[in-house]
Design a protein around this nucleic acid. Sequence first.
DNA 1: TGGCGGATCAGGCAACAGTC
DNA 2: GACTGTTGCCTGATCCGCCA
Length: 330
Amino acid sequence: MKALRSKWRKKVARYTYQVVRMLNDAGVDRFTVRQLFYQLVSRGILKSTRRDYKNFDALLVKLRDEDPWLDSQFIDTSKPRFNYYDRMYWAGQKYFVELWCEKDALRGFFEPYAKRYRVNLVICRGYPSVTRLREAKEQRHIPPNVKYVVLYFGDFDPSGEDIFRWINKELRPYNIVVRKVALTMEQVKKYRLPPRVPKKKDPRTPKFIKKYGEVAVELDALHPVILRDMIRRSLLKYMDIHKRLQVEVAEGIQSEAVEIVDEVLKNLRAKLLDIALRHVRHEINLALPKAYEMLLDALESGRDISLKQLYDREKVLDHVRNTMFRWFRT
DNA sequence: TGGCGGATCAGGCAACAGTC
DNA sequence: GACTGTTGCCTGATCCGCCA
């Protein structure tokens, strides 16, 4: 780990590790940045201010970047991730595709397509968290020899472009392809989308204006039908349709066969149950006269007795079992 | 003492909840 | 409905500590 120059940072880093270990000892091994922040506030290490939070957050990003163990302690519940990926559905495909969207407002629009095409959906809510990026870098659920592709959808503005740049910078070293499907300058021109002036105070604005001019457009401005086609087309681009068809046909055959077997088994079970009932009833009826005497004796002497004790259970079961096996063979 | 690079600050993105 | 706070990230500009 690189040395931390400021005394404040050194102190906070030391206490951060101390508190994390204390939480681990107490059986808490996953928490949010905010939870940890307040643990340090409650110990008087930090003040409950925006400034302290931002400084602590920035320090934590650095510490997590350098220490995978520390990084693994955090969860992020604020930026939703929907795991709809289906290994069977994507069997034999060259790509593992995920949809990443900048804004939660469009979640409801993206979700049906994620479900339909069995791909994961990540809602960034601005910049994606270190936790979400770590999950992508870990590539836990990705089959071997499959290329990981992130299809990104965000605004065409200084921040939207920068979020895409940032995701790309973070994931590219991990052999992950990040593609901005929408919104691009070409799409803004092609669909004549209503522009707004980029925010002047944003430090990313000058660079953006220099490159594209004074134009910024929200992803929401795109007509839903066009956006729907973009999602569909971008997904299909990474899907081998013939392979999908083969798998779909194989799945269809399998499911039909299973259905038939289920139906046959259902009838067979009813039939077998009927045979077993008849034979068990017959055997128990044979044993009943003797059973009545035993029951009477038990009642008079005050003993508890169960039905299974009134006849030779093993003998009856063996008999019925053999009868049924004989029926099967015929 | 000057240069390098880390630290800090104040701006931004997003959505949602709570308050007035 | 407007405003504020929360959460987790980012940026560029400036400040400041360390080292040769």
